[in-house]
Design a protein around this nucleic acid. Structure first.
Lengths: 354, 354
DNA sequence: CTGAAAGCGCTTACAG
DNA sequence: CTGAAAGCGCTTACAG
């Protein structure tokens, strides 16, 4: 299966372009890289040659020669991602990550690469170290829980690779992009309070996550502002899982003085709330309002379609890429950036029952 | 933002390993590439040096030197993918594609890269040509509709890049991986026939797709085998869209002698069937059975959860990667491969009503 | 504004 | 079994 000579055109290189345009190789390089100091007539001649030959620079060669990779690397938690994928339970986090990242990178002539890394500290360190050594990315984006791993942050810092975190984090020379979780929970709660709900349950995911705590805080703030005491706020953890959420909601709905609205920390738990409501003969939203935090594709098709806080995942990755590309080019871009969320109102929320 | 000398360790190269192990650079290269002809004692010494230095080869340099990229490129239709992503309507096709592809590639020391290409012929050709010139992948996987585009196939053939198609296709030196669509529709139909259904509707997506025609054929074969005439088979097109599917199903259910079961060509249309059934006061599955072709994450959470044919997307991409890697290494791997599907039985199908 | 030289970090023939 | 040389296709200083 050897390539026979003459079997097909040899790949066209920068020297072919230089020869055709009658200039030196590095002048062509200047045009490719939009460097200044090329006479217009020469530039045009070179551009024509490029066009005519269909020349596109070999990216690996550019990386080798210039020490730039034109690559932003996005890292996700391996175990969790694989588990979701193999259960056919992909939410669209990865999709939105690629959407925002690929689109933004392309604008700048960059590529986005997506890799998985384990959470266990030793493995995480080794795996990220290897990936970075092999790929030499110009920037790395870390998502939770990696974004909170000091060893990984230090590794990237030591190798002078600009690093972005999709999380609200403090300290260090990073690009931090996040959504205002506290504010989103506040808005979701306000939406329900305006409908007259006076007993609201917050079905949280996992209280060990900083996000979960921030949301809970926003929820409490909204209730407090309305002058509602602690008794108005029902809370419990469904650990992001359908079955566990079902149990918690069942308990709530069969207790005396049940909540008239539920805010769920993710869509899967919101689905569970819908199922339990139906089993208990409660109509949504007339007997019970449900609102979710996530807005994955399926929520438009539930009965009824779910009102939800939409995470700006794509926008966050786009922003992180844009900033990292700036930083890798020597520009000024470190810092923290909040990206706005949206409350998508559908049919699962309505006035509180009498 | 220059890297100051001494600011951090210089990247370790193959020469550092060679120096530490006291051998030449190409002997280290042999160990990295698992070539034969290295004395065991020397191999061990080198492996220790690699371990000690934490050396990982620079992938771009390997690509430059060896003419191999260790890269498999998966191409999706740009417009459709972006449209789904921006509508927040990602099914998990991309997820499963990455799942199967990344996992398999990693086993062989390869990477998977994912890119989008437009459908319009001129753009498609130009874009694929550019990507291939920049990245020099060792293999490319084309999905519909690109997998049926003769220009793209020819382009890859001319550049001697092994090409895989995720589609049932004929002719050419390709790796073709597909699922038995006709057989899957046959199985879905059998499932309903065993429940005693004698009037079944097939809600097809878009009859211009070869897959759609194959499924319809499987459906008809199952009914014919049971001795049911044309009148038992109701068919219509919902064009893969919720609203259009709603209209079709509404018509069916309000007509005299309505079907007692519906097979939908994708999940979105199955969701629509569920909504219309509910509006018409029909219980699923006691009054109407529904079965879908796709099995995206949301179907486990509908009321009731949907019985569905599960597309083996990850398995198809894994297979394609494995074969392409073999072919790119000079091995024998071209040909057509069928990957088994699964009928996932949940709660939306049951005995036909009296 | 343009070019000749050196080098990025590997691998592939080719010697021995 | 091991090594010295050449080359992959670019970019980066450095001259002019």
């Amino acid at each position: 299966m050897e390539k026979r000579a003459g079997d097909h055109k040899r790949n066209v290189t920068i020297d072919d372009v230089a020869a055709l345009a009658g200039v030196s190789r590095q002048t062509v390089s200047r045009v490719i890289n939009r460097s200044p100091n090329v006479r217009d007539s020469v530039r045009e001649r070179i551009e024509q040659a490029i066009e005519q030959l269909g020349y596109v620079a070999n990216l690996s060669a550019r990386r080798m020669g210039g020490g730039k990779s034109f690559l932003i690397l996005a890292i996700n938690d391996k175990a969790r991602t694989i588990e979701n994928w193999s259960a056919g339970r992909g939410n669209d986090w990865v999709d939105q990550m690629l959407f925002g990242g690929m689109t933004e990178c392309q604008k700048h002539g960059f590529h986005m690469s997506f890799e998985l890394v384990d959470t266990e500290p030793d493995q995480a360190r080794k795996q990220l170290s290897d990936i970075v050594a092999a790929l030499r990315p110009d920037g790395v984006i870390l998502t939770p829980p990696h974004s909170d791993n000091p060893e990984l942050l230090e590794l990237l810092e030591r190798r002078a690779i600009p690093c972005g975190r999709i999380a609200r984090s403090e300290g260090g020379a990073f690009v931090d992009v996040y959504m205002d979780e506290e504010g989103a929970a506040y808005e979701a709660s306000r939406h329900l309070l305006r409908f007259g709900h006076r007993r609201i349950a917050f079905l949280s995911g996992n209280p060990t996550y900083a996000n979960a705590r921030a949301r809970l805080a926003g929820f409490r703030r909204a209730l407090a502002e309305e002058g509602l005491g602690e008794s108005a706020a029902v809370t419990g953890s469904g650990d992001f899982h359908f079955e566990r959420a079902e149990d918690v909601v069942s308990d709530w709905l069969s207790a005396p003085n049940p909540p008239t609205a539920i805010i769920a920390d993710n869509d899967e738990m919101a689905h569970a709330a819908l199922h339990v409501a139906r089993r208990n003969g409660l109509a949504v939203p007339s007997d019970l309002s449900v609102i979710s935090f996530e807005d994955t594709p399926g929520v438009r098709f539930t009965l009824p379609p779910l009102t939800a806080i939409r995470q700006p995942t794509a926008e966050m990755f786009a922003k992180a890429c844009e900033r990292l590309i700036t930083v890798s080019g020597g520009g000024d871009g470190l810092g923290a950036y909040a990206v706005p969320f949206t409350l998508v109102v559908r049919d699962s929320t309505g006035p509180a029952p009498e």
